[in-house]
Design a protein around this nucleic acid. Sequence first.
DNA 1: AAGGGATGCAACCGCACAACA
DNA 2: ATGTTGTGCGGTTGCATCCCT
Length: 241
Amino acid sequence: MEKEEGTRKGPWTEQEDVQLVFYVNLFGDRRWDFIAKVSGLKRTGKSCRLRWVNYLHPGLKRGKMTPHEERLVLELHSKWGNRWSRIARKLPGRTDNEIKNYWRTHMRKKAQERKKTSIISPTSPSSSSSSNSNSPAVGFEPMIETEGRSFYDTGGVDIATGQNNSGVEIEGSAEVYSMDEIWKDIELSEESSNLRSQGVMSSSTPPIWDFWAADSLWSMDGQDAASKMDSFPFYYNHLTG
DNA sequence: AAGGGATGCAACCGCACAACA
DNA sequence: ATGTTGTGCGGTTGCATCCCT
């Protein structure tokens, strides 16, 4: 596979981000090795994918987990164990990585609390079987899940139609929580948390989004995309250099 | 104000699986 | 049927920031 010498590692620069977003918008988020090569980024396809999925994807929600989301994570984890990507599919805008991180923190806190309480009362009840294990509860009935495109899939631009085939429809509707509920909850808690923390979203939103928000290739026809490419320095730098 | 520990998050690694030749 | 390549996933690590003393 890719045994590229001189591949970059470590944190991504803003320029790399811009470059990656550009090429993903052009070619879709499937052919990562191809994108890695064509873009001139000295990154592996894997690294590109990860960066896109966990940070650059336009549908990502940033900021604190809402109480509703926290509840969902707990509930789904008790059913599915460490199936982070699966859990993430039920939480639009959240990545498996994010949820994984959240869970770790959550468990750490829980563990500490338990330590404290067990010091106070050493004979604590043992009813925690469903919440602290890596393995799903035995014999659970799996949620009805529409397998198919994951939330992350943007699929790129269909050059012929100029359409974005992201299909933002997120999973089926036969769920414990309706999407309306979740979105309402998200909006509400986001508004309040934004007020509290004076704009966590805006400060943590990747700056390159501004660049693309105005007229992203998603919503362009072929000509627009081409003209956008004209104005994009990296493209020709790489192809001609 | 400074130092040290705790926390959060981005990124890497290794493995598994699917698609394809 | 088998080997190769690309992608996805879960676990882990490293670093920056926060918080407490």
